[in-house]
Design a protein around this nucleic acid. Structure first.
Lengths: 211, 211, 211, 211
DNA sequence: CATGAATGAGTATTCATTCAT
DNA sequence: CATGAATGAATACTCATTCAT
């Protein structure tokens, strides 16, 4: 699969917050539950979070959660997909297919940084936690799509001779890992990542992978 | 605190596996429990792991765990310190204080890679999981020592003019993150990290931080 | 503190059984749990009673107990206070402050006998068991009030020259002990304590303490 | 059964402490276990006491207890019988069969007081705890013998016209209860029961039952 | 639809008892 | 004999899920 086809197959990738309100208006409750679940999962992890806690933080009854989600596991999977899709959507939307690799890299980097700024909890949940014990097939498939996109980007760039000729997984691991480590460490140290720091960091990581 | 004093204060940092066998031989049970706990914590996380599961995988009775560890929390802290100390011990042992920054970086990179090769579960546990909800004071202090060492290394190298002049947390985040991302991604993709891949990756990440 | 002030400070002393039913009706469950706990604590003591046993006898799920009581210890303290208050309430209600010592003694004796007749389990629990290992501050304070009342009664009567001039604790120990021994022994022997036996016993014990 | 036959059937009633040492000398361990068990049962009750605690206080291994006693229940029954027999032995030994009722009562009262002074833990265990949930047939039989002795004493005295003509259980309950209440209350209040207090109390209780 | 009381399977932990040394 | 490490059944308590209101 090449990068072109991945970018244009943008089915059902939507951002979480400005979701089109359903006529019934119960999207409010569902959204409140998803938000409460997200923040608790980030704080205490999936197994460390009790469903009644989610209900309380969402301001709904415990039973209500089960009107919107079949189980605690179903809930965490919706949270996962909601945010994975939001991030992936941003990366793919109007992806500059014909720009230089450096410009493409910069676009990906800045879009992800933007996502971190706007959805810090979403990013923390997606990237700072281990999901292996509860993701279902649909979530895993979504994750696969994201990986394929990364691989396609790297392979295309390598063919152009812009990136080091090593296994894409290596480069992706380094870049994504560096990004996550950056966010995580600066949060840990109370360091605010402003535009200039993001730019410096982008330059650093670009140096790691470029030829 | 400078890097010299940190490196020479190498109190009680020992590797986990070749622990000096006690005459009584009951270290066996304790070790089996620690090993079982480690692998389960890696698979399912602390909160997702039940004590009886640990007992079963260790091949001991559930009650036996409490002869060696006061509680599930005490157990996870021993696991944490055991491996954090092992890793930190390797990094600090005979650290080449008078070598060039590049050589020091290489030593740290290869020693950590060596640790990953020998104790993959230990590394996964240490770096791929969120420990904030259960670490006790002693474990946090140990973690602090590791961070101080990293900061001291970076600051020393920056004074020498060898590393980019940005907040140490940024560089540490990038390097450590890249390392973790590399390990995690290659595991995910079934890619074996051999010596040459480690060397390439080291070169990549060095390019990210050097001036 | 004198007997007059104790008797008129009759705050929140209520009898357990005819508790004003709440509209919601969940007092039923709570009451069933308290009743089941009471009977089991009498039979086997606090430490000899398992929470699931209480649940089963109350006809509720084990978890339900924890919706009404924070812990097994909280439960036993509510049981204790419920019955201690009921007994103390009966003793203090409209206490004949201006009657003769003999009449006051008779009132106390008959009121306690009445309580035994109506709440035999409550009395057994209160007086036939050692509570020291689990009573909380509130329960101990209540117990203290009961003791103060007894001491005040004895001291007042001694000043009037109606009771033997020995330490109140001695007289209280004898009277209360005799009452308890009487109840306990007659239960043991299958002897029903009817009105005439109560009257005889009262006369006996009065002879023990009067001048 | 009359009092004469009971007093002369003094089979196997022995005092606990100066037990004839067995040749093997392991009576020491057994005795240490019984002593430790006694003090713990008094402090925390049977169900609140763990066997390893008994072992530790006795200064023996946990397994050793099971060389002397078949189970925790067997142990508590031996403790019970040991002390019940000791008390009963004192009461029956050289009982003044031909003295006046008043003198006989005084003997019983003072002998029991003496027992309290010498074996306070034994008395506390026997009389201040509920044993119904673990006593075996042999212990219950011993208890029956004690009761029969009391009944025989009362009936004999009643025939002589010295005690009130009410059911013996009533009088026994009052006397025994008063004795226990006295000990218990004075302990509670930190009051030392000296010879004169014992004498006063005896006079009080005698007044309760005499004609 | 929404609720939250009720539940029982599941959790961490304790403890009476056994048995290899 | 004496031990104490080992155990697993039992305990107090939690929590995902259901269902009557």
């Amino acid at each position: 699969m090449n990068i072109h086809s991945l970018v244009t197959t943008r089915s059902q990738l939507s951002s979480p917050s400005p979701r089109p309100a359903r006529a019934s208006g119960n999207g409010d409750k569902s959204e409140a539950i998803l938000l409460a679940a997200l923040s608790l999962f980030v704080e205490r992890g999936f197994h460390g979070t009790a469903v009644p806690e989610v209900a309380e933080r969402a301001g709904v009854g415990a039973g209500t959660i089960y009107r919107y989600f079949a189980s605690k596991e179903a809930l965490v999977n919706v949270v996962f997909r909601q945010h994975k899709q939001a991030l992936l959507g941003r990366l793919l939307a109007d992806f500059p297919l014909h720009a230089s690799t450096r410009e493409q890299f910069s676009a990906l980097w800045r879009r992800t940084a933007q996502y971190v700024a706007e959805e810090p909890l979403g990013f923390s949940f997606l990237e700072l936690h281990h999901h292996s014990s509860y993701l279902d097939a649909e979530s895993l498939a979504l994750e696969q799509r994201a990986i394929q996109f990364g691989v396609a980007f790297v392979e295309t760039a390598q063919k152009r001779g812009d990136l080091r000729p090593v296994a894409p997984a290596i480069l992706i691991g380094i870049v994504l890992g560096a990004f996550i480590g950056l966010v995580s460490k600066s949060t840990q140290c109370g360091l605010t990542l402003d535009a200039s720091l993001w730019t410096v960091a982008e330059q650093c990581v670009w140096e790691a992978i470029r030829i």
